[in-house]
């Protein structure tokens, strides 16, 4: 299983803090599966992320996915994906 945690506005959109998902091949596949589960609000965020590489900050086991293969980063049993909206601060 893959543990997925949600933060910020994404947590509000999906309505939960955390979930467990059957292992998928890649982050992209996992997001597809989650879009199916959480519907349009989450799906839109995912779509925008695919298009612009923005909108979601995706951290897999403590690494931003950009540095481990992007959306095609492979997944394995026991991984943890943290899903954040694009935010900023100082």
């Amino acid at each position: 299983m893959i543990r997925v945690s949600f933060f910020g506005i994404v947590r509000e959109i999906v309505g939960e803090k955390e979930t467990q998902v059957e292992a998928e091949d890649s982050v992209a596949d996992l997001l597809e599966a989650l879009s199916g589960r959480y519907g349009i609000g989450f799906g839109e965020k995912v779509l925008k992320t695919q298009e612009r590489d923005l909108d979601l900050i995706l951290i897999l086991n403590g690494r931003h996915i950009e540095h481990i293969g992007g959306l095609s980063a492979p997944l394995k049993e026991g991984d943890h994906l943290a899903v954040f909206p694009l935010v900023g601060g100082g």
Partner: peptide, 24 residues
């Protein structure tokens, strides 16, 4: 812009806590 149009107005700067913590 995702940060100035949505992120900062909705959550302020405090939403960074979990991000930085996740990154260790």
């Amino acid at each position: 812009n995702g940060v100035t149009g949505e992120g900062l107005p909705t959550y302020g700067t405090a939403v960074l806590v979990n991000i930085l913590n996740q990154l260790g």
